[in-house]
């Protein structure tokens, strides 16, 4: 599978909005739904919010104003806002629910570049088969542990174990490249 560069998606959108939107959809939809799910705690609501978000991007043409270099940050920040307003809308109707969750740092999205997406994708493809299937299910397609367990006929604990194995291997791959990760500072004491 090839990763279509953000630059190309945006210029395609200028020529033919429908084609551009489809590319943007294929590239980011699943990931944005996974992200929205963390705010809303509910996958189908997350899908609704992200679909609405895409429609607004398209109908107002404000994808035209998106900064090419920071497209991922722009999209995730937009979905985050959409989730916040969706939650407050719901809270008017129901008792407020405290879903504090854990913050995903904004800087993490600045690090998502086409080059990096491509490298991670290649490395996932190199994982041992069962590990790869679990990583693809949970990380890429946003399936729950249970769904993946049922699909592969293994236990939920095995899914968790294999996911951790996969993530550990990926982190090792990118460790030499811990320095490749831009926009990170590590302070340490002078020894």
């Amino acid at each position: 599978m090839t990763i279509i560069p953000d630059q190309e998606i945006l210029s395609r959108f200028d020529e033919n909005p429908r084609d551009g939107m489809k590319l943007l959809f294929d590239k980011y939809y699943t990931s944005l739904v996974g992200y929205a799910g963390k705010f809303l705690g509910d996958r189908s609501r997350a899908e609704d919010v992200v679909q609405e978000f895409y429609i607004r991007l398209w109908n107002d043409g404000y994808l035209k104003r998106a900064p090419v270099r920071f497209l991922p940050s722009y999209l995730y920040a937009g979905v985050r806002n959409a989730c916040c307003s969706a939650r407050s809308r719901r809270d008017l109707l129901r008792a407020p629910v405290d879903i504090a969750g854990v913050e995903i740092p904004v800087e993490a999205f600045i690090e998502i570049t086409d080059e990096r997406v491509e490298r991670v994708t290649v490395e996932i493809g190199r994982l041992p088969e069962r590990t790869r299937l679990v990583v693809q299910g949970v990380m890429l397609r946003g399936q729950s542990y249970k769904e993946v367990a049922a699909e592969l006929s293994i236990s939920v604990n095995t899914v968790k174990f294999l996911l951790k194995e996969g993530v550990r291997r990926l982190r090792e791959k990118f460790r030499g490249g811990a320095r490749e990760i831009l926009f990170l500072f590590f302070g340490k004491k002078r020894g």
């Binding site: 599978m1 489809k22 800087e107 998502i112 997406v117 890429l140 993530v167």
Partner: peptide
């Protein structure tokens, strides 16, 4: 944590084509 999040979401961006029903709805 930031490093792990960046890895996770870079992976999920590479997921490829999303379910067709959502796209039809958006259209």
């Amino acid at each position: 944590w930031q490093e792990l999040c960046a890895l996770w979401y870079s992976g999920s961006v590479g997921a490829g084509e999303a379910p067709g029903k959502a796209w039809e709805y958006i259209l």
